[in-house]
Design a binder for these strands. Sequence first.
DNA 1: CCGATTTTGTTCTCACGTTCACAAGCTCCT
DNA 2: AGGAGCTTGTGAACGTGAGAACAAAATCGG
Lengths: 252, 252
Amino acid sequence: MTPARSRRPGAPTRTERGIPEATVARLPVYLRALTALSDSGIATASSEDLATAAGVNSAKLRKDLSYLGSYGTRGVGYDVEYLRYQIAREIGVTQDWAVVIVGIGNLGHALANYSGFGTRGFRIVALLDAAPELVGERIGDMVVRDFAELEEIVAADRVSIGVITTPAGPAQEVCDRLVAAGVTSILNFAPVVLSVPAGVDIRKVDLSIELQILAYHEQRKSGEAALPEVPELPAMNGVVTDLPSVGGGVGA
Amino acid sequence: MTPARSRRPGAPTRTERGIPEATVARLPVYLRALTALSDSGIATASSEDLATAAGVNSAKLRKDLSYLGSYGTRGVGYDVEYLRYQIAREIGVTQDWAVVIVGIGNLGHALANYSGFGTRGFRIVALLDAAPELVGERIGDMVVRDFAELEEIVAADRVSIGVITTPAGPAQEVCDRLVAAGVTSILNFAPVVLSVPAGVDIRKVDLSIELQILAYHEQRKSGEAALPEVPELPAMNGVVTDLPSVGGGVGA
DNA sequence: CCGATTTTGTTCTCACGTTCACAAGCTCCT
DNA sequence: AGGAGCTTGTGAACGTGAGAACAAAATCGG
């Protein structure tokens, strides 16, 4: 066996300007840290300073930044404004991205009022819901529009990012409509696994899952003596029979 | 050079009952998929069925489940109810966890109304805010209480999980108060890096960061021509000879 | 009872991510 | 000018995760 490998074992596969996914996920954190430093009037920061502000260790931060290029100065550190611009450009937030939010329930309301969007390269161009009683409602300086207008809005405003804040039930259908209308990136808050065609990016935010991960670790902490080994095959009746389906709560 | 490695390279180091973090993060997804199957009246499911429902591949699912024990039957599959209980027990959601939410703005409102909590092993015992004009407000069947009552509530209800939905400014102070009061797991929605002592778990949910990650990939997509997508093409290393490296820069 | 069939549990290998450690490079001081 | 002192950028070791592949059980039909 052992087919001849033509590549060296530890090669990081950094083809051209391909930035590792783990690094991409941290760039926005660095961007925020840099903005905070800038607001404090700090003009230069070392990798140690930045790493502390971003909550990572300095070696990781330096390696992450090295994928973008050599923007620091040895013996000195990084120019805060310059690095901030370079990261913003790499992420793509130097331009504005049009966003639609679908599902104006509690969470949709909260996002519509979230001021962090407009100031960071994202512009909410429409709030959509299929419920007639919601259409027309004013939220901030926007008005809820009918979901049927989706295609028209996406085409007119060149929307490429959609946010789904509906309940689980209609989420897949909404997703399909978004994709068909031309949206190629989706942020999903509905507690359901969405399927999308290749070429469409999807990210999921799930409050319930986050809490469950915390619970797992919490259980570990409280009493190592917990987790009694369970017999092979008990009746398995009863116990958690009350969990209703995944539907629930967030949307209209 | 090249000192001989005396240890085997791929040793998984599965000591005791330590479940890999990546697996822990997927268990809640499996739990939800199992609940959905159960609600559909399906009593038995193969790893293939489950994997499809959970949006992962079957090999990964089987490996994940193998960390919990051998709960399947070869040639048959998994008993949905039994496996669901085992996962719920492993995560710790067969018991109830008391949760406090601090910061009753738009997002705090949304979470307070989120029905997904109560039905999944989590019980919101208090909504807290420091603003006098919010204290006393009714949300669902709860009333907003003063943040000053935190310590009393945590002690009385044995609260171990806290959710922070304040703005960035007061988040660290709120966090410190939570930890001092005895909370050992924190879910943070504020756009800031919180520091906590060892022994306290913290998870972060950040809408702005998720959007920025999408924007990065979106920027990549629009730079290339439409990919001639073929179902089986895992390679990402396409030729990307675009983007002039660093343009001008910010003459800071 | 035996073989065919199905599906799990596990092993093996490769890819990805993190951390260490240090040479390269910059500034400042003498 | 030249060395001392920092700090970046990166090569290499190490650890974790993913996926293919297969042997080990379990059922079913004859």
